[in-house]
Design a protein around this nucleic acid. Structure first.
Length: 222
DNA sequence: TTCCATCGGTGGACAGTCAT
DNA sequence: ATGACTGTCCACCGATGGAA
């Protein structure tokens, strides 16, 4: 995502459904000043950047482009296929390995539950990443989430899962859940806990205790 | 179709700040 | 003191959407 700072502010403002004067008031500047910032006719000051980040609920690094804005920030913004591809490639190798271990950990703990199909798995990964970010301001597994009909989907999920199936770390099975075909994943090896810290495991356990017995609709409601 | 309100963008005037 | 730069206020314009 190569948007300028002004364009990012505008996208985030529109995603929240605010008018220029509403955002300007929240940040404590005039509407004309905001218009100039959004259109790159005026530089933004450090204290203003911090206030924009607070009001728009993103980090200053995200506004400055050091960390890409994601689908959580831009609910109404849909990246192009090219952008998605760039995001997929940008996932660091260490996070891919972590993603694998987190997925195996979840499957070992709750994968056998009848309600835990592919959709519930997506939602659990999303909540784990989201809660971790909220607590520690960094993503645990660093996945990029795409909004779809059934909720947030990690863009990297399919390719990583296919690699794991090829590496015989998990297997994909199909079962019936309330007269519907359900895709399930079963672990074929134990989790390598070396890659997950105590605080990461604690947070994952908390999310699983809270949500793993719910079905997809109940998690969405939550 | 016309009218009206709202929103976003822009330009001019003015004032404040800062470097020279 | 002067000029450059910036922020604010005010006014205006065009686009858009809803109501009559």
């Amino acid at each position: 995502m190569n948007n300028t700072l002004g364009e990012k502010i505008k996208l985030l403002r529109e995603a929240k459904g605010w008018r220029q004067d509403e955002l300007a008031q929240k940040v404590g500047i005039n509407r004309e000043t905001l218009s100039n910032i959004e259109n790159n006719h005026r530089q933004i000051k450090a204290d203003e950047l911090s206030r924009f980040a607070d009001v728009l609920e993103v980090s200053s690094d995200q506004l400055l482009g050091r960390i890409p804005l994601d689908e959580v920030n831009l609910e109404e913004f849909y990246p192009s296929d090219k952008t998605k591809e760039a995001m997929r490639i940008s996932v660091p190798a260490k996070n891919v390995q972590k993603f694998r271990e987190v997925l195996l950990y979840i499957l070992n703990k709750v994968g056998a539950k009848s309600n835990v199909g592919e959709t519930v798995l997506y939602k659990l990964l999303y909540f784990i990443d989201f809660d971790f970010y909220e607590k520690y301001e960094e993503q645990l597994i660093g996945a990029t989430y795409k909004k779809n009909t059934y909720g947030p989907t990690p863009i990297e999920f399919e390719s990583i899962v296919n690699e794991m199936i090829a590496d015989e770390e998990i297997e994909k099975v199909k079962s019936e859940y309330f007269q519907r075909e359900q895709k399930k994943y079963l672990p074929l090896r134990d989790t390598c806990l070396d890659l997950l810290s105590a605080k990461e495991l604690k947070l994952i356990d908390e999310v699983l205790n809270r949500l793993a017995d719910k079905n997809a609709a109940q998690i969405s409601e939550y």
